[in-house]
């Protein structure tokens, strides 16, 4: 089975990347690479060949979904530079992604959305679920593929749920 995952993270946003020197960005890139490595064996382990569509353009999330038709969205919740641009206030970093979840949910009611962030708190978790998140997860920042690897089983679970919903719809 093939699965397309739209990975929305400010790490991919030029707005974010131009704020940091390359010797600081390397830690983010390092983490992304460990995540990709952790999921690289998905085909053999869970029978799903994963294709990532990486984007830092959260404003266009709806258009991206329409264009790419992903099976699942993996959404980072912390977007300080976009919050600065939009509200003039970096501390509203999560308002950007919560709004995006609402927007996605309004147009794509059944598309699974995984909300993903470093050091979350309960308040943010509640906000994400009320906005329409399917699953809320804590990002583990250790750049070890072994640590990122279990994510594929969550992806698999969500894809299966979708599949069975689609099948029951067909019946």
């Amino acid at each position: 089975m093939n699965a397309k995952i739209l990975f929305l993270d400010d790490i991919f946003s030029p707005l974010f990347r131009k704020q940091f020197p390359s010797d600081q960005l390397i830690w983010d890139d390092n983490w992304i690479s460990s995540l990709e490595q952790g999921l690289a064996d998905s085909e053999t382990k869970i029978g799903v060949c994963i294709e990532f569509i990486k984007s830092g353009d959260i404003d266009s999330c709806r258009e991206l979904i329409e264009k790419e038709k992903p099976d699942l969205v993996l959404l980072d919740l912390f977007w300080p530079e976009d919050a600065q641009r939009k509200f003039g206030d970096r501390s509203r970093a999560t308002d950007i992604s919560i709004d995006a979840v609402k927007k996605i949910r309004a147009s794509f009611p059944v598309l699974p959305v995984i909300c993903y962030t470093v050091q979350p708190d309960r308040e943010l978790m509640e906000e994400a679920y009320s906005a329409g998140a399917t699953i809320f997860l804590e990002k583990v920042v250790m750049a070890l593929p072994e640590i990122q690897s279990p994510l594929k089983y969550i992806l698999f679970y969500l894809l299966r749920q979708m599949q069975s919903k689609a099948e029951s719809g067909l019946k």
Binding site: D28, N30, W31, P80, R90, M142, A143, L144
Partner: peptide, 19 residues
């Protein structure tokens, strides 16, 4: 700003060192 910098790259850097 301090909080944001700690969030990123701070935690990512720490994660890499621990790894």
């Amino acid at each position: 700003d301090v909080s944001n910098k700690i969030h990123n790259p701070g935690f990512y850097l720490l994660g890499a060192l621990k790894s």
